[in-house]
């Protein structure tokens, strides 16, 4: 039993539309960032830098002991 041609065409058409639907929430999120001016990824980078600096300070102190 084979897949019907009309079903195959419908699946391909709908799957292409699905790609847009997968991207939609991501696009809307960045759209909202553009409107509000939020940049949450920068906050995270800043936090990571602070953590790295704190760790380095601790290890330097330990080295001096």
């Amino acid at each position: 039993m084979k897949l019907e041609q009309s079903t195959k065409t419908q699946i391909i058409k709908n799957a292409s539309l699905s790609l847009l639907l997968y991207i939609l929430p991501i696009a809307l999120m960045f759209g909202s960032f553009a409107i509000t001016g939020e940049r949450p990824w920068e906050k995270k980078q800043h936090q990571q830098k602070q953590q790295t600096t704190a760790k380095t300070k601790v290890s330097n102190t330990q080295d001096n002991d």
Partner: peptide, 15 residues
Amino acid sequence: GWVPFFWGCAIIAVA
């Protein structure tokens, strides 16, 4: 990990 909670839910729900 920086993705806000609401948008994280929307991304996961759709995916």
